[in-house]
Amino acid sequence: MRALARIVAEADGRGGTRLARLRGEPPLQLRHTPDGSGAATVHLIGSAAGPLGGDDLRIEIEVGAGAVLCVRTVAASIALPGRDGSRSRVSVTAAVAGGGELRWLPEQLVAAAGCHHLALSTVELAEGARLLWREELICGRHGEQPGDAVISTSVNYGGAPLLRQSLTVGPATPGWDGPAVLGGSRATGSLLHVDPAAAPGGPEVLGPTAVRLPLSGPATLVSATADDAHRLRGFLER
């Protein structure tokens, strides 16, 4: 399946956020779920299983000055193999204007056995933009080894590189679950917090396999591995 979803959020001029554009197509359905705050919350509802090998799903997000957009998913997505072994791909392209804020807080991605998945995200933050960006990867469903998955994230701030990271798991990569990478943990993830107004802090150890890292730029990254999705979320909640 090929599909494109588009969300454009703008300040409504009364301290709130309105969705100037909200358009999805199967299997990417979008629902505006007002929560009474100044932010606009959109839930992404997968109307089909997957992503499935061969799928090419694109999500485009724009957040204007003064707008706050929160994007969530209703359930974990499960990357599954296609019939012919072809790759599934989900790409997210987001742009946030100065004074705007994007919170990208989806549920986990589960890399099921035999999958061949690529998640590719590119975020362009103007100077003064804020961002919360969570990524959680679960290696395989219960009791199975994962297929191959790559989660690649690229974030610019004010035109300069802020974060470039690409996490690869699965049998095609020697050492992926070994002591230099995941140490046998089945869950790993990160939460990027970009806020130019936040006071810069030092690194902080949050647990035996979780740390908060100040980046070179107005941002911190919590990085963690855990035995399961629940424990992982404990480190990445905010």
Binding site: S154, R164, S223, T225
Partner: peptide, 19 residues
């Protein structure tokens, strides 16, 4: 920008704990 960007979570985590 296009050069490899492989991340190993435990490399980052244990480097901070080690420090």
């Amino acid at each position: 920008e296009e050069l490899p960007a492989h991340a190993a979570p435990l490399a980052d985590i244990s480097a901070e704990i080690h420090a």
